[in-house]
Nucleic acid binder design. Structure first.
Lengths: 160, 160
DNA sequence: GTGGGTGCAAAGTGTTTGCAAGTGT
DNA sequence: ACACTTGCAAACACTTTGCACCCAC
């Protein structure tokens, strides 16, 4: 049961495809349905696995060819935490200003928003003559709660 | 002519090797000399090239086997900006609290320090239940000045 | 002498791509 | 029909590793 935001995001993406005169195929639909039906962050490999549950004919190549379309549309956010693979965030359209912390042990990704940090980043970048494109706050260490419970209640806490 | 800080860093690294009962070889010395004689950030490939100017027998494998020792010692900092390759920062011992911003166009890396951001990061991480070991903020963007002049005068500006 | 170190080339890993066959519009 | 899409497998780029030889201690 996708949230209203997800349904809207999916619609936007279909419009994006249409605008580029790209076709709707069974494989693409399986991938898109998957992406806009989850709140979770995922990797290319996970997306492949999930999409294949909907349509066994989905190939790894198609997943990799569809991901750039998703990020180009602005509805999915690509994240690189210095691991071997990239993560993708399907919540970007709904919360475009959030940051991420990834736990080195369990690889859980926690979202948070901080106006202060964002303001400071912009300020400093401007002083340095940069226009910011991406930012990554990387925390290494352990998430106590996740270690104990396997789940973090503070997920997506707001830190203004 | 290495700065006093670099000379000290090299000494520390030699002590680090000694402490682990690791040997000093001509190849390692060439690599170490290179690393602690530059202020610049570099990639594995660049380090190989530079080290080979000192000792032609240095192989790519040895560079890749030495880099983990350098980062493990805490004297060199590994950075991943989402490019295909990693960057290494030899200035970490002298300025352990700095962040980086990299230009997507020219790949120049600028260092900056910000107590405020660091404080906010600690605060937020704690709220999220993380026990922080290290934290780093990595920003990518476009550098207007570098685009125009090929050089950024604001390099290493202080932003308290 | 011996255990760590080295170069080489092959293997790994996540991602991209050439190609021939398939398919939405 | 035509151009876009697909799956497959080979190609890629960076990094790691197995192995036989080498050398610092």
């Amino acid at each position: 049961m996708p949230s209203p935001g997800k349904v809207a995001a999916k619609e936007k993406f279909l419009a994006f495809l249409e605008g580029k005169s790209l076709r709707m195929t069974a494989q693409r639909m399986a991938i898109i349905d998957t992406v806009f039906n989850t709140e979770e962050h995922f990797t290319a490999e996970q997306l492949l696995e999930w999409a294949r549950q909907k349509d066994k004919s989905v190939s790894r190549a198609t997943v990799y060819r569809t991901l750039p379309l998703l990020t180009e549309s602005g509805l999915v956010h690509e994240m690189d935490f210095g691991k071997d693979y990239k993560f993708y965030d399907p919540n970007y359209a709904e919360h475009p200003h959030h940051n991420h912390i990834i736990c080195n042990d369990c690889e859980k990704i926690v979202e948070f928003e901080s106006e202060k940090i964002e303001r400071l980043e912009s300020e400093i970048s401007q002083k340095l003559g940069f226009s910011v494109k991406t930012q990554r706050l990387q925390i290494t260490g352990a998430c106590e709660q996740m270690k104990k419970s396997g789940n973090c209640k503070n997920r997506a806490i707001q830190c203004k």
